[in-house]
């Protein structure tokens, strides 16, 4: 289990469309929308998967910036250590 939270800024005109697209993506929960920014939480199996989703978001039309706020990967780390 890897949990990350991100803040996404979009252009104001594209904001509704961006919310729409992100809302349809899997493993994403939108927690707050404000002034053409939104805060989301990602729950993925691995960091790689989180990176892939973040990249997908970045490639959407009207996205200005994707910022990582927090990233929890203790479980993953333990798995890696065990291996």
């Amino acid at each position: 289990m890897v949990i990350s939270s991100l803040v996404i800024s979009s252009s104001p005109t594209a904001f509704d469309a961006v919310c729409d697209s992100i809302g349809k993506m899997p493993k994403i929960e939108i927690v707050e929308k404000q002034d053409s920014k939104l805060a989301i939480v990602l729950e993925t199996d691995s960091t790689e998967e989180a990176v892939t989703i973040a990249s997908e978001i970045q490639s959407l039309d009207g996205i200005l910036n994707v910022e990582l706020v927090s990233h929890f990967f203790e479980d993953e780390q333990k798995q890696e250590e065990n291996q």
């Binding site: 949990i3 990350s4 803040v7 927690v31 404000q34």
Partner: peptide, 23 residues
């Protein structure tokens, strides 16, 4: 535990949103 981490992650993102918007 999962919920706790998730909500912490969410609250961090929201607080960062508030600060960056100058609210």
């Amino acid at each position: 535990r999962r919920d706790f981490i998730k909500s912490t992650a969410a609250s961090l993102a929201v607080s960062s949103l508030l600060v960056s918007c100058g609210k």
